[in-house]
């Protein structure tokens, strides 16, 4: 029984790997560098009051910039694989669901705005807000209100790229003052809010797009 043997071998190998990993982790001494302290010490200059947002958009804002690029890239890939010229007409959904969606969507937008605003001082921020926006769009699509995507037009493209572009322009402009994304402490808060606002819109659109560009071929192919 070769498959059985193979399965046993795989399970054995995986178990020993996971075991070794766990033991190695248990064996670790305390790290020499303690970044939370550094984060704490620099919070005042970061322009926001919430540490995760400070790391995400200030201390390690460069990672975030590239990551938005990754997200945009994934959408490009999805579009490249098979965008069609004209979007298919939305399939009509059930009336009850549509009613629900019509009610829920504005609420979700409100939630998104709240999350964005709250991100400066407590959990929340552009990613969560964008995700909620995206979810609202998905909901509207599933209930047949929002059509699927074909190749995006100019306005949609501008919306998709806006957040990334704002981020990029800020990064480039700040280079004049010495380094990429080196916010002057006085304007840090405002700049971060500007970037987050742009990101919220674009992330919402991109996340929605990942779904809407994909789902369009579910209906017409069935």
């Amino acid at each position: 029984m070769i498959p059985l043997l193979k399965r046993a071998a795989v399970i054995l190998a995986a178990a020993s790997f996971a075991g070794a990993l766990v033991f190695a982790m248990l064996d670790l001494p305390a790290p020499g560098v303690h970044l939370p302290a550094a984060v704490e010490a620099n919070m005042a200059a970061s322009g926001v009051a919430h540490p995760v947002t400070a790391v995400l958009l200030n201390f390690r804002g460069y990672d975030t910039l590239l990551e938005v690029g990754v997200l945009l890239l994934a959408l490009l890939g999805v579009l490249a694989v098979g965008a069609r010229a004209t979007p298919p007409a939305p399939a009509p959904g059930e009336p009850v669901k549509r009613m629900f969606a019509r009610l829920a969507a504005p609420l979700m937008v409100l939630v998104a705005v709240y999350l964005l605003w709250a991100g400066a001082i407590q959990p929340g921020g552009a990613f969560q807000a964008g995700a909620v926006l995206g979810a609202a769009a998905v909901l509207l699509h599933l209930t047949g209100i929002l059509p699927g995507w074909g190749a995006p037009g100019l306005r949609l493209r501008a919306g998709l790229a806006a957040g990334f572009l704002i981020f990029l322009v800020v990064a480039g402009a700040l280079l004049a003052q010495g380094a990429v994304l080196a916010y002057p402490p006085a304007q840090a808060g405002r700049l971060i809010l500007l970037i987050e606002a742009g990101l919220t819109v674009s992330l919402g659109l991109i996340l929605a797009g990942l779904f809407l560009a994909l789902s369009r071929d579910s209906g017409d192919e069935a």
Partner: peptide, 25 residues
């Protein structure tokens, strides 16, 4: 201002985005 390190990353990002805005192809 003109630190090539930063521009080598920002410049391609700029034109990639610009190409996206210009449209397919």
């Amino acid at each position: 201002m003109t630190d090539p390190i930063a521009w080598l990353i920002l410049l391609p990002l700029f034109w990639a985005t610009a190409a996206f805005l210009l449209g397919p192809g």
